[in-house]
Amino acid sequence: MNERLLRFAPGLFGLLALALWEAAVRLTGVPVYIVPGPIAIVGAFLSDPVGLLMALASTLAVTFTALIAAATLGLAMAVAMSASRLAHAAIMPWAVVLQVTPIVAIAPLIIIWVGDPFASLVVCAVIVAFFPVFANTATGLASVPPELADLFRLYGAGRWRTLTLLRLPAALPYFLSGLRISGGLALVGAVVAEFVAGSGGFASGLAYRILESGYRLQVARMFAALVLLSGAGIVINIGLGKLGDAILRRRGLSAVAGA
């Protein structure tokens, strides 16, 4: 099989699908306020690029703030949990409760309690993004081979040295793999929170633009916002993947298989 053809296959398939979509819309004459074609969607974006890109920036600000907070919190709680069995017993059930609670159900409550629009969106996104980085890091901290742990004991290493010289470096590939999953989830969390908050009328992110366009039957604009959102998700996923690979390569390590 031609390697170059394989490399370009996803792009070519996408273009073919877009061409078929445009042709189908034109041939059937379906109105643009029900199913717009790709050209109409590009047109909708070009009619207000600044507005849509500002909305994207607003959503991304929430996403990245939440991701940093989730990573910090996840790492800190995983370390606390690995340090004592009591902390493990106390924290783990609540982390699972947080993970299984649908964010849509608790977002209105958070928005009321937190008050500040930006902060409340961040809190919602953190709740969604927290678990993968937390659970992965906890797994990584516990993944140290028993012989290495014995070696540290043999040389009289205390908890702090064992953590900084052994457990944290061993957990790094797990943390980075969790961070990649959490990156996508932070975006999902930010968008869901914007949807809930958006109906309150104080949000400015892409989800709010989608809602607004829906009310006005500007379906092409809805699609344009959707495309930006998917693109952001893909860039975050690939970007965090490449960042993780680069960090691990520098340290002579490889990513966690299957994580």
Partner: peptide, 21 residues
């Protein structure tokens, strides 16, 4: 097994017991 720190160089691995002291 050699049980070395995979992220550390040979030198850093050998230094480990002294570092812990």
């Amino acid at each position: 097994d050699a049980t070395l720190l995979p992220w550390a160089t040979a030198e850093e691995n050998v230094y480990l017991p002294l570092r812990l002291k």
